[in-house]
Design a binder for these strands. Structure first.
Lengths: 332, 332
DNA sequence: TTGTAAGCGTTATCAG
DNA sequence: CTGATAACGCTTACAA
């Protein structure tokens, strides 16, 4: 059932029917009613492909999964974020296009594809980096983007992120106030802006409390259990060991806890460990993990609505949203 | 840069250029080479919307997230599955369309939308039910579908699922062989085919070992921690209590373990608990959870390739793939 | 208020 | 082998 068929069955032209259906003003109430009624009866559905071709909009926002080759898959936080984005987009009749990065494809090529491929009206970029080639590319081409993670001040792209600095300042302070001042930081991969902010938060607190920092206790690691295990295992061999280890996410913290147990330390007594993200795995590990929590679903929704705002009005002001985090103190 | 522009710059017609680019035979090698070279130089990219409109194919497969209103979000298994599907689809230049079910929308309406909305060439249906209205709808309209979960024998739709019967037969047998014969089954929601198969597997083993089953120890529950906790808490009040509780997934099992601890039972000694899915949360809970594992990423890939097969040839035989599971015995 | 006709960027059918 | 020309189904000036 196409627009043409519907129009013919009503003895009207395609344009009139189109206008009636799309709520344009210049169509008589009587006609409009007739059209709408017929459309409903005959079960007419506009072909979205045709609409989009005509309008030059795809009504889709794409995001590239940070996964699969590394076999780490989606973190719980990311899947909540996806759900939030999905829900919000659907309110605007937009779709979420999820694509993965196949082994054989270079990441930038995939972005390039989206830029001049016309498959999406905008892109969500996750986990920004300090000198992010993706951002640079997208911005040069003026492709609509919302980032999860910061970008350079002079780059006119809207972003959203948790308050990484504040979160790590806070948790550092938490341990310091308990008299634990020998603290290690197992940060995320160095290029990520979130890692740098967390590091800054940690150092900020250490400075404020006039605590010395031990260089090789501050490490940039992969966000994996294994990386956490290895690094902790190494450090804990030394004569002097930290009283607390702050990890960049819960997964890494789980690995650190294993290493602590391995060398006979009681987590929550001899040594303390914290994570980030408030994943299930941390809630149920032993001892339950002290962590930093935030509402990833809400972040996803926000990314979607920021995107919609930008698409509907390209002059929308750039904004950098900062999301509150919450320290969840458990037994670790 | 459109096809027309490219053609003009080469003094050729659109059709010739199109044919050259799409690898049709009836174009001279010289021309083809010239066209391909120019296309590359000028950075020509076909507009996918136009291609799809002309071809009548969207090159997208949709799936509807089982989530968000319930705020349970995506299970780890499901996100791995998504990643697998995504990866495989991309090899065929297909996209994965992820949509959620907004609060205000009826599930069937959303499916209806996909059927006559022309937004996707096929649909992945997850967690089939016994009398599944979605399946019925899709099948009536002959919409291409691959199901995760069984369907009625006479319904001509391809499916893939883990071997639920076998898995639960096996784990039941595992406990029985250890002399634990008072076993409870906390199954998933009754309408799900997977619940019924697991129940059958459990009963099969109990029969084979000539063990009586206790009716009210066999319950259909939500796949949530809370449901597990409540149900276990109730049952454990009674004078006679089970020696083992088989749960429909790891999340539920976590709840059951909490309840056991609450009433002072030592899991792994006084009572045993198992899950399904091999989620992280089970690997790290205390004691580590005995569970049933399978390769969800591979399942996703398979669903994608089954879909591709069906789309490329509608006469492809219906198949029902069964995926092996693996019993992972830990301390619970 | 309605209709005509020209796009949107491809593919596909037929002549030549 | 190549080129018109008509789809695909919709939107949108511009006329009437």
């Amino acid at each position: 059932m196409s627009l043409l068929q519907l129009a013919q069955s009503l003895n009207l032209s395609k344009s009139t029917v189109s206008r009636a259906l799309n709520g344009y003003a210049d169509v008589s109430p009587a006609t409009r009613e007739r059209v709408i009624k017929a459309a409903k009866e005959m079960g007419y559905r506009p072909n979205p492909l045709a609409t989009r071709l005509a309008k030059g909009k795809t009504h889709a926002i794409a995001t590239i999964l940070p996964l699969s080759s590394s076999h780490t898959f989606i973190t719980p936080a990311f899947s909540q974020l996806l759900a939030g984005a999905c829900d919000e987009l659907s309110r605007y009749d937009y779709q979420l296009l999820v694509s993965s990065l196949p082994e054989s494809v270079r990441e930038l090529d995939l972005y390039q594809n989206y830029i001049d491929g016309g498959m999406a009206d905008g892109l969500f970029v996750m986990r920004t980096q300090k000198q992010d080639a993706r951002i640079q590319l997208l911005q040069e081409r003026k492709f609509p983007v919302i980032c999860h993670g910061s970008v350079d001040k002079n780059v006119p792209i809207s972003t959203i992120d948790t308050d990484n600095y504040q979160a790590f300042y806070h948790i550092t302070e938490h341990y310091l106030q308990q008299g634990l001042d020998k603290i290690a930081l197992f940060d995320g991969p160095q290029p990520l802006t979130l890692s740098q902010q967390r590091c800054a938060g940690f150092m900020g607190a250490m400075h404020a409390y006039e605590q010395p920092m031990i260089q090789h206790w501050m490490q940039y690691l992969q966000l994996s259990e294994d990386a956490g295990y290895q690094a902790a295992h190494n450090i804990l061999q030394e004569k002097e060991r930290p009283q607390a280890i702050l990890c960049a996410n819960d997964t890494m913290a789980i690995g650190v806890i294993s290493a602590c147990k391995k060398v006979g330390l009681r987590v929550g007594q001899d040594i303390f460990v914290s994570g980030y993200g408030n994943y299930d795995q941390g809630r149920y590990c032993s001892p339950p993990l002290t962590t930093i929590s935030y509402d990833a679903y809400a972040v996803g929704k926000m990314m979607a609505s920021m995107m919609m705002a930008q698409l509907s009005n390209p002059d929308t002001e750039i904004q950098h949203k900062v999301v509150e985090t919450q320290l969840i103190v458990r037994d670790s």
